[in-house]
Design a protein around this nucleic acid. Sequence first.
DNA 1: ACTCTTGGATAGTCTCGCTATCCCAAGGAA
DNA 2: TTCCTTGGGATAGCGAGACTATCCAAGAGT
Lengths: 214, 214
Amino acid sequence: MRLAELSERSGVSTATIKYYLREGLLPPGRRVNATTADYDEEHLRRLRLVRALIQVGGIPVARAREVLSHIDDDSLGRTIRLGAALWALPQEPEPDEDDPDVVAAAAEVDRLLETLGWETSRELSSLSPVHRSLVVAVATLRRLGYPWDAELMAPYAGLMHQVASRQLDFMETYDSLKEQVEVAVASAVLFEPVLRALHRLAQEEESARRYGIE
Amino acid sequence: MRLAELSERSGVSTATIKYYLREGLLPPGRRVNATTADYDEEHLRRLRLVRALIQVGGIPVARAREVLSHIDDDSLGRTIRLGAALWALPQEPEPDEDDPDVVAAAAEVDRLLETLGWETSRELSSLSPVHRSLVVAVATLRRLGYPWDAELMAPYAGLMHQVASRQLDFMETYDSLKEQVEVAVASAVLFEPVLRALHRLAQEEESARRYGIE
DNA sequence: ACTCTTGGATAGTCTCGCTATCCCAAGGAA
DNA sequence: TTCCTTGGGATAGCGAGACTATCCAAGAGT
């Protein structure tokens, strides 16, 4: 199919598709001649994923490119490739190591990982952006006066572990490693809005049950 | 304290504080005379909350103002006030009612709520922005080919319900309604990064356990 | 009295995600 | 062939959002 058809089937304007091509989010089509390129179903699929990452997930374009490059890179093993794709997602600013709240938060997070027996995460803690964003978030809560410590977080971590397990089960229903990594990314980025919405819905529901509508 | 001190203690530049004052995110200080205003601990606390909403939660300034106005409005009942604050948070674009994926997603979400017995949420479904964002997220997943239906979501919803219950328990440890609403907002906005990070950490950990580091 | 700081107002800056325009080469119809 | 439309590449511009830098007048500090 040509650019115009790709645009029509995806609902994304040709100008925007050209922009994504320029930015390397979408591989170029097969050039038929100097003025025509041919796109296939794979392009359409990729374009939908890109839109989902950017629009629903709110990932910046530059970061989406990195994430996608890890999905495409089939030279790595499963854990590394999956990790690389997930590590490319958040990118919060470096926490200030001198801030006492950050220090306290880092200690609590480490204690949490120890309690849970998550040794792998603990070993990678100085490297992982995910770990860093957890520290930043906990430090912020503490700064606001909420006493988030390992004991308070452990049950949530247990619940999220159950969630993650389910998702990996789901991921394993796909055959190719590329699809699996894509599923993992889609889970991380698109499933989080679902979880967030479920969380808030549950909060509304439970609040109405406890206190009525008043 | 004066503006400069507020800036120093919060780590936010005076220019930015002035900007927040202008935008109504921060109530003006008590004017001592034509050139001096006095700020107190409450201002500092509010400023920290504002920063948390905007920086950690990624809430746009205009929306943060709405949310804060609900925290301050003590003319409403608990559920309404809490709901109003939470409803002001997401604001995703209206889903396209003609899109078959959206229709299917809405049907699945309704079926989910029915299964769970979340009648309140079901009744409010046409109004609640939270409900809408759930539909949008599920529709996006379906569009990408992931078969998200009520059965698949139910266990997650159960888990998130447990999370929400815990948070309301925590909220109840605070005395004043204003503090409780603030806790709820902080939970919704700041706790979500914590959950997200825990989720991804769990994914890393479980992935390493299942597949090794390779 | 003289400088320094404060708070308020205004306009500018920077980033990001597009989007509109221009241009040229094919390809099709006359 | 000639003209006219269309697709694709390159470039510049736009609009929103979150600050940020500058200016100014009125007190405060010494």
